[in-house]
Simulated assay, not measured.
Amino acid sequence: MKRHVIQTDNAPAAIGTYSQAIQVKDTVYISGQIPLDPKTSEITDDDFEGQVHQVFRNLAAICKAAGGSIDDIVKLNLYLTDLDQFAKLNLVMQEHFKAPFPARAAVEVSALPKGVQVEADAVLVLENV
């Protein structure tokens, strides 16, 4: 099995023992993205909605680097520190994704890296591989 590393400066750099994304054939597995500004490596916003927007911008940048778009995501996993924010999450998601929406899980967790409120990882399938 041949694996291809996907990397872009338009999303936060992978720090540690992981890659931003790995492509195997037409499938790309994107590592968890938190709301870090890729230029400063700082959290972009204390506001929940602002954090979700940055997470989706990071995912979109990695999708583009892989030769696809955020609309090619087929599975999205979302991790929230407060599931009461779920309705806000859905509103922001509608600004970044169009129907048909990806399959999705949303899970409340006790904590996320750097104290952020949201993280997402994804799987996308490229059509022209």
Rank of each mutant, 00 (worst) to 15 (best):
M1D: 12
M1Y: 10
K2T: 14
R3N: 14
R3S: 12
H4I: 14
H4E: 13
V5G: 08
T8V: 09
D9M: 12
N10D: 15
A11R: 03
P12R: 08
P12I: 03
P12T: 04
A13P: 08
T17S: 15
T17G: 15
T17R: 14
T17N: 14
T17E: 15
T17A: 14
S19C: 11
S19H: 15
Q20S: 04
Q20K: 06
A21Y: 05
A21K: 10
I22R: 09
I22P: 07
Q23A: 09
V24T: 11
K25V: 10
K25P: 03
T27W: 02
T27N: 03
V28F: 05
V28S: 00
I30M: 03
I30D: 02
S31Y: 05
G32N: 05
Q33K: 09
Q33M: 07
Q33E: 08
Q33Y: 01
I34G: 01
I34C: 00
D37K: 00
D37G: 01
K39R: 11
K39L: 12
S41N: 11
S41Y: 13
E42K: 13
E42Q: 12
I43A: 06
T44C: 10
D46Q: 12
F48W: 09
Q51L: 05
Q54R: 11
Q54C: 04
V55Q: 02
V55W: 06
V55G: 01
F56S: 03
F56Q: 03
R57A: 12
N58P: 07
L59G: 00
L59K: 02
A61Q: 06
I62C: 00
I62V: 14
I62E: 00
A65M: 04
A66R: 02
G67V: 04
G67W: 03
G68W: 02
I73G: 00
V74S: 09
K75W: 14
Y79D: 09
Y79H: 11
L80D: 06
L80N: 05
D82C: 03
L83P: 01
Q85N: 10
F86S: 14
A87W: 15
K88R: 12
K88Q: 15
K88C: 08
L89Q: 08
N90C: 14
L91E: 15
M93L: 14
E95M: 06
E95K: 09
E95C: 00
H96K: 05
H96S: 10
H96G: 01
H96R: 05
F97N: 00
F97P: 00
K98D: 10
K98N: 07
K98G: 07
A99S: 10
P100V: 02
F101Y: 13
P102Y: 01
A103Y: 10
A103M: 13
A103F: 09
R104E: 08
A105Y: 13
A106V: 15
A106R: 11
A106Y: 03
V107Q: 15
V109H: 10
A111V: 06
L112C: 01
L112M: 01
P113A: 04
P113H: 09
K114H: 14
G115P: 07
G115Q: 10
G115C: 01
V116L: 07
Q117A: 10
Q117P: 03
V118N: 05
E119N: 15
A120L: 10
A122C: 03
A122G: 05
L124T: 02
V125K: 08
N128W: 14
